[in-house]
Design a protein around this nucleic acid. Structure first.
Lengths: 352, 352
DNA sequence: GTGAAAGCGCTAACAT
DNA sequence: ATGTTAGCGCTTTCAC
């Protein structure tokens, strides 16, 4: 490997000149320029990014923390992050934490050691210590959930609103027993989804059966088993609302149970990450764009020398109606069910 | 950020001692040891990996080139690579090339600049120049297809054998019009799959309709459209064989066309990356393990100081029978079809 | 066992 | 316009 010194010697100039030319920071005589370029071509010279970063304190790398890479939602985001980063000449360390707090910490510290220019926390809620550590080291942080810090940027989705609107839509189809297969209850977005659901019920003057809000772990296995269990209940749901990845599993479970979708069960997803039959009613998040925003935020914050005020973007989202949801029917009316109008429906005061 | 100098000053020792202790390369008096440790704890010191790498020429990072990240096969591999790398204290640059030759090149050069300890080329067939460049820079390279170089390791799958066995299985079900929705014809594994298919037909004494071998681009859109087109043919296939990601799309297309799987059409996949209904007959590759092997190879090659001989591993694979394949029937016998035993079948000499 | 000092390859003042 | 030089933070001889 040739170094800047070799180039300087070959071109009969100083290393400073070579460096200046390479970075477009100085103007030189055309003669000098070509001498340098010739030398570079001859030696196949390439900058050592490590040495450069050591001096400039810029590494041209971003760390992207994801809770999963198997859930198809995240590759979509990673794609956006990567594309945008590449456009800026940046690269991305992919850090798949598997929702493991320890792995999260390790990544945070490892990334700091490697002097990344920014860290993107996608659905990765760090501990106070880890977050503080990033801040102390002046590493630009971009998150997709609200944080206290004034100097971390946020690329968010109004999860509460999304959830509320979807539930409203499902209620409008006549569903009164909607199960929410949620993620871990301590996560912000999961709490928001519950709130949105509650609001939708409240505003409709309906009461919500709390047993239909289920805390899961975002895994397909859980969703599958959960669906089976729901259908062992005396009053199974007429509709299941969950993330796309889990919804795919719900569809499979329904298939295996001989439950028709949407005739017997409506299924609604969240984040438009899977392609199924029947097609899924879901919420489009523009994941790729979210990814791009993540990178954009991190990089611009780094490039900005002056301290930047916190920036918050709420990304748009829209409900996409598929074939997995339909009017609520009573196909799976169980023997023990009241054959009269169920009490839930009565609460709707004839709005159906 | 505190440096090794700060620690040295605080502990009243030299930087060399601190460094030696930190890397476990020297033994010091317990007293000295605790002085250093105290100082480190007090200052929250963390090594600067950049500076260290600049000296040691080891960065603790691997570059992983993938042709796609949306195809669920690749996240699975990435997971394996990452986990194994992490165990060795390494990190992974995820490089999603989208099968774009230019992006591939750019990544190769960028990674070299950043002084990666190894590059994993997963289904990424580099140009001669790019490959040579890596070799010239002494960067350990691991591939999953045969390469000329004596010093690149190979973690392969016997694609020909896999393809042959699957086709044999499908033939055994009575299928005689099996369509192969393949990837780009210039790719090694795609060629191998064709060869395997041909062998299976040959050995069965059957002749293969070349028009059923279709060059695709691994995209779901292509697979979907391709399926539709196949069913516009006078003689549609009774079976479609393709990769899992595309197979999922084939299932969707069949659903949309009202074609029942497996009654009207059998579908077989490759790489066990999707979960569908009906469940897919596919080939299990142990993708996660492949990923681990990738990382293992790259890292051990780097750690080995003496030049290592080329290592080649053939990873096992096994056919997994799902519900997407079944005995060939004549459900979709079209009016123009001969009602007598089709000529293809006659070639089987009564073996059916 | 520990310290001093050179140097990895680069950039950025500061000279000229 | 170009050269000189210090130094980023670390490791590693080589002394002692």
């Amino acid at each position: 490997m040739s170094t800047i010194k070799d180039i300087a010697k070959l071109a009969n100039v100083s290393t400073g000149t070579v460096s200046g030319v390479l970075n477009g920071k100085i103007t030189v005589r055309p003669e000098t320029y070509s001498k340098i370029m010739d030398a570079i071509a001859k030696t196949n010279y390439r900058v050592n990014a490590l040495a450069r970063s050591l001096r400039t304190r810029e590494s041209g790398t971003l760390g992207l923390l994801l809770p999963s890479i198997v859930n198809p939602y995240y590759p979509l985001i990673a794609l956006g992050v990567e594309d945008c980063a590449n456009q800026y000449g940046y690269h991305v360390f992919l850090c798949n934490t598997e929702r493991d707090t320890k792995k999260q910490s390790e990544y945070v510290y490892a990334l700091t050691n490697k002097v990344v220019d920014g860290v993107i926390l996608c659905n990765t809620e760090l501990s106070k210590e880890d977050f503080a550590y990033l801040q102390k080291n002046n590493i630009p942080v971009v998150v997709n959930y609200p944080v206290d810090s004034d100097c971390a940027d946020e690329v968010c989705i109004d999860h509460q609103d999304v959830s509320k609107k979807m539930i409203q839509y499902l209620l409008s189809l006549g569903h009164r027993r909607i199960a929410l297969i949620n993620g871990p209850a301590n996560l912000f977005r999961c709490q928001e989804r519950i709130l949105g659901m509650k609001k939708a019920y409240e505003e409709a003057g309906l009461k919500l059966d709390a047993s239909l809000i289920i805390e899961g772990d975002f895994s397909q296995d859980f969703a599958y088993e959960c669906t089976r269990k729901l259908f062992k209940r005396k009053k199974p749901p007429t509709c299941i609302f969950t993330t796309d990845y889990m919804a795919a599993s719900v569809l499979n479970a329904a298939f295996d149970l001989g439950i028709r979708v949407p005739e017997d069960l409506s299924v609604a997803g969240l984040d438009q990450a899977v392609v199924t039959r029947p097609t899924l009613t879901t919420v489009r998040y523009h994941s790729y764009e979210i990814g791009r925003q993540f990178a954009e935020m991190a990089i611009t914050r780094k490039k900005h020398n002056a301290p930047l005020k916190k920036r918050t973007i709420i990304m748009p989202s829209s409900i996409v109606i598929g074939n997995s949801t339909g009017k609520c029917s009573s196909y799976i009316k169980l023997p023990h069910e009241n054959t009269f109008l169920p009490e839930e429906n009565r609460e709707m005061n004839g709005e159906i």
